[in-house]
């Protein structure tokens, strides 16, 4: 077992670049064993690319720099063979689009059993039993009869449950969930979030939950990492960040989230757009959209720094923002 003080996953200076497009501009992030961390950001903030980069799923011509240490071993630049051994029992992933995530020409039972026969060398009979158990575990009724059904015969929520069953089949120590509920109805969404929480409590696996939705993040995670323009801008305990955001972007996100304000008339959209990914950012990347930006913000890039116990922020005026 890993000592509790040592992170399960530790990312340092991670950069992902596609040609001139800088999707991730250098992020640091760590996940302790059993911890649930949410990565929050609007579309284009680099949060999904981060998830794929951890798994080594960035294809050429994409370029990955920095380190992704899983259980103390760096994964960046490792061979496909080494990575394949870690994918599944080490790190597993659930994607946003559950229809596209399942192979349309094989039955779901076939696809769940494939993991067990290929990765664990089980015979088909034993794999079948376990596939039924997994489907029941993720809340699919009449699992035994539905084993032979194809992905298009399931609803979106059910497909996502099957994706989760496949992800937990090898009992991963870290589950990366990339917007797993974004494509689903709100009622179905709640069920999936409850399922993820229940599975985490049973197995003690760590969770890295990528989302653009603060309310969703709060339901599954204890720690929060806020990303903006390919960088981490704020990091800390999620409830504390909700109570007292220390970065203007986080504050703006809270004010623009229907789940976080008392009345719809208090909703405040964030004016403007994130910076172009091909251009070099001087100063603070959020400054052009920031209501309290000062000349210093446009000239000098802020560092991610400790602003209070257990909290880091990338803002020159973090303390003032937090104490408004």
């Amino acid at each position: 077992m890993t000592a509790p003080s040592q992170p399960l996953l530790e990312i340092a200076g991670l950069k992902v670049q596609f040609g001139q497009t800088k999707a991730v501009r250098g992020i640091d992030l760590s996940v302790m064993p059993g911890e649930a961390v949410a990565v929050l950001g609007e579309s284009g903030s680099g949060k999904s690319v981060t998830g794929k980069a951890i798994m080594g799923l960035i294809n050429r011509p994409g370029r990955v720099e920095g380190t992704v240490a899983f259980e103390g071993r760096n994964l960046v630049g490792r061979s496909e063979r080494d990575l394949a051994a870690i994918r599944g029992p080490g790190i597993a992933m659930v994607f946003q689009d559950s229809l596209d995530a399942l192979n349309p020409v094989y039955s779901v039972g076939n696809q769940i059993m494939e993991i067990l026969t290929v990765r664990l060398g089980w015979d088909r009979g034993r794999a079948r039993e376990e596939a039924i158990r997994l489907m029941e575990q993720v809340g699919i009724k009449e699992a035994e009869t539905r084993l032979g059904d194809y992905p298009h015969q399931f609803s979106g929520g059910m497909r996502q449950r099957i994706c989760i069953a496949m992800a937990i089949a090898l009992k991963p120590r870290l589950l990366i969930a990339d917007e797993p509920t974004t494509a689903l109805d709100v009622t179905v969404q709640a069920g999936i979030l409850r399922l993820i929480n229940a599975l985490r409590q049973e197995s003690g696996m760590a969770l890295l939950f990528v989302t653009h939705d603060l309310a969703v993040a709060r339901q599954v995670a204890t720690s929060l990492v806020v990303m903006y323009a390919g960088r981490v801008v704020e990091r800390g305990k999620i409830d504390e960040i909700f109570a007292r955001p220390s970065h203007p972007y986080t504050r703006a996100l809270l004010a623009s989230n229907p789940g976080a304000v008392a009345h719809w008339s208090q909703l405040q959209p964030i004016a403007g757009n994130p910076p172009d990914k091909a251009t070099k950012v001087t100063g603070c990347a959020f400054a052009p959209r920031c209501p309290r930006a000062e000349p210093r913000c446009r000239a000098e890039a802020p560092e991610l720094r400790d602003v209070m116990p257990g909290r880091q922020s990338r803002c020159h005026f973090a303390e003032e923002v937090a104490h408004v």
Binding site: G88, F95, L102, N103
Partner: peptide, 17 residues
């Protein structure tokens, strides 16, 4: 390049598979 092949890759299968 389809999602299900990327997803299968995330389950640690060989390129042949």
């Amino acid at each position: 390049n389809a999602g299900y092949v990327q997803n299968a890759r995330a389950r640690g299968y060989s390129w042949k598979r």
